[in-house]
Design a protein around this nucleic acid. Structure first.
Lengths: 208, 208, 208, 208
DNA sequence: TATGAATGAGAATTCATTCAT
DNA sequence: CATGAATGAATTCTCATTCAT
């Protein structure tokens, strides 16, 4: 009598993730306010009521989207730094190129633009995002640059400033692409830009 | 003895600008959807009805805000380039520093973040913005870099790529500041960053 | 010093009539609610404020339109009946044809449809209209038919019923023309119909 | 002990018809513009939101009202004509009397006045109504009269003109009753009028 | 669990009316 | 008298949220 549940029934455990995925897609594209829960539900293949089964309300869904999407991104990079040996500029390139790669393919890559747009409407979420992503990745790059300075590979610059100078362009290009994809007549390849940016940076950071 | 305040003053000529200013403030802060026309009106010192006297609807008001705010920004810079004599890196600094200056004080400086947030919801406006601002300033900087290459001051790089590398960080820092002002525990000074960015750039652009 | 006002300045006495005329046109076309005072004013060549100088509000303007437009129409007909000599069917034709004529040209001819549409929203006005126009013209025709019966020209019928049978079709055709002008693929000439209707009637009223 | 009444009942299938019925009542009485959706909802026993669940907006509701209400009316009459045997004047009476009957009892009978009032504001709907109702019933009667002429029962008249002369009075009387019910001091019985009208007509149509 | 019909608060929009000029 | 800028109440419409099934 007590037959084990068939495997595919466990799919219901996947529901929250599917809803979050759908919400991410729509929030990223249209923003929080312009996204209707009805559309999220439709995209997730459920009905509105089901969304409320898993998330208290639209705000909580939004927070869940950000929280779920954001965290895992950096862990990989942090271990990379930890374990690195060799030239720091090589690591810098590894980080930048893998980051550019993620940006082009990861479904989560729309979150930057979303947070930029909604931060002032969701202060606590903004704080979470800043702590978990912005500052954390800034620290990551500052760390690399700092080590490069220690090793004499880079000249003495303010590592936090430098970290901003390293991260900002890539994020900005990605955000622009997302916002103006339809009308930018001079599209740019993210990976090509990453390479260009890296070259400029490394020469800029070296001793004259 | 004291006559009651008149219910309103007749200020036809000033009204549209006042409303646009109010709308810019609120749109910049909260985004399009989260801004209520009632609040725009209140901030402009009028009633909702008055807003509709001058703007057909919320979207048209939004467009007017962008159009009015955006255009004049670049003219100053373009004449600066035209009339410049001397080292191109000096001009680059002039442009970056004056731009950073504007970003810190001009009321219009919130427009970038606003457009990033709303571009996909207002495609025609996005195109206008891209044409009038994004591409135009990219060209401006590309031009400067190109001349620097011609004159032998800079090494041979792709000027459009370089232009992106020049403009993106400044915009990004500004946008971040706006979005995360309340929660960034490591705030950065825009002008200081501009200086840092410039130093990095110029060294990066020079011949090795 | 005290020069007499130039003649054309007396035009200002014409203002109310001009406004009423404009209002009649628009009310007739779109109905009471769908007519904006702004448009009435524009059509009358004045501004909204001026309308309120002469009429307390939209309802009063509406009433004025009906009152001014409606009354004079029947006086002419009533004297015609009074003074008639000869066959009553000739008079009937005279009345019908001159009425059809008016309907095609008088600016007031849209009032029937207007009253049909708005009667339930303006009960007192409806009463006025019924008394002054509907019942009065019904009586007029009933009178003619009655006299025709007295003289032996028509057979004995209920004169009030007959009066309805005489007036209703003409009004209906006119109203239909007005309502469905744009889409009736089989338009009818009002005067031709009047003739047809008259022939039918007269034969119908005669002794068998 | 006694459970509180549920806030609402689930009645999906019945709702649209109920809303249309309520809307028909109010539109017929007050016209399109003067009818508030709130009142329609209240009369249908739902809330405003529910109306929008089934109809895109007020105009679409209006169109639905007309479309749903109008069509079935004529089918019965058309089969009657098809299958008729005997004197055409008998059929004419059958049609007129059953029509008068409908007019007095059918809930849809207010639609004529409504369309007369709103036709110019809803041109496409007017066309639909003209095609489906006005022209169609005109043709119906023209057909009968034509057959009467063929059979020698009626004299040679223009059948379309005659059809107008047959239909217009009945519609007009109905419309007048609706508009001026409250103030007409000489109310008329629709069926009695139909009889009177029929007698006049038949004598008018016969050979002299 | 899942659904989706129904709700109701809230925002955009319209326009008759007022009133400073 | 005339204007037309400004008002604000009324109405349409939207959509997050609830809840009977």
């Amino acid at each position: 009598m007590n037959t084990p549940l068939p495997r595919w029934q466990r799919r219901k455990d996947a529901r929250p993730a599917e809803i979050i995925q759908a919400a991410l897609t729509l929030f990223s594209d249209k923003g929080f306010a312009a996204t209707r829960l009805d559309d999220v539900a439709k995209l997730a293949g459920v009905t509105k009521g089901t969304v409320y089964l898993y998330f208290e309300n639209k705000e909580e869904l939004f927070k869940a989207v950000v929280r779920e999407t954001v965290v895992p991104a950096l862990e990989f990079a942090e271990t990379l730094v930890e374990e690195h040996q060799g030239a720091w500029s090589d690591l810098l390139w590894q980080l930048l190129s893998s980051w550019a790669e993620r940006m082009e393919h990861a479904t989560s890559s729309g979150i930057s633009r979303l947070m930029i747009a909604e931060a002032t409407n969701f202060p606590e979420l903004a704080r979470f995002y800043v702590d978990e992503v912005v500052v954390r990745s800034r620290r990551l790059f500052a760390d690399v640059i700092n080590r490069g300075i220690q090793s004499g590979e880079f000249r003495e610059v303010d590592p936090m400033m430098a970290a901003r100078a390293v991260t900002a362009p890539l994020v900005m290009i990605k955000v622009w692409k997302q916002s103006f994809a339809l009308c930018d007549t001079e599209p740019v390849d993210l990976k090509a830009f990453a390479r260009f940016h890296f070259d400029l940076l490394v020469q800029g950071l070296r001793h004259r």
